[in-house]
Amino acid sequence: MHEASIGQSIVKTVLCEAEKQKAVKVESVEIEIGELTFLGQEQVEFWIKTGFESTIAESAKIIFKKIKAGIRCNKCGFQGNIRIKEDPQYHMMLPTFSCPKCGSSEVAIIRGKDAFIRRIQITQE
């Protein structure tokens, strides 16, 4: 739901950096989106492209990567992906915020809550 503000923030950061680097063209932008952010990739891309219109980033290739949600168990020390499985009752994919190894609910989310602008590729004069 906040794809517009995230998209605008990406546009601002990329164009600021490009200007700082005296770029004449932004070739590509690489973005990573965490599984737990609820950001719709298609909507984020729409807002970035809208923001890039009539700028040096207009033809930039936008590359998206996904960050899998990860947890750390405070009880047994397990580190890995969270369990997401289909629930036959609802026919929905439901995540389980507990340790898949020992079942403890004392888990910390260590991956998947964030989104990053990893890198940009630019051409200078």
């Binding site: 809550k113 964030d114 989104a115 602008i117 590729q121 630019i122």
Partner: peptide, 14 residues
């Protein structure tokens, strides 16, 4: 050799 890659690693929720 023409274009350069800049690592930003900017966390949008940071």
């Amino acid at each position: 050799g023409k274009s350069i890659e800049i690592k930003l690693n900017e966390n949008l929720y940071g």
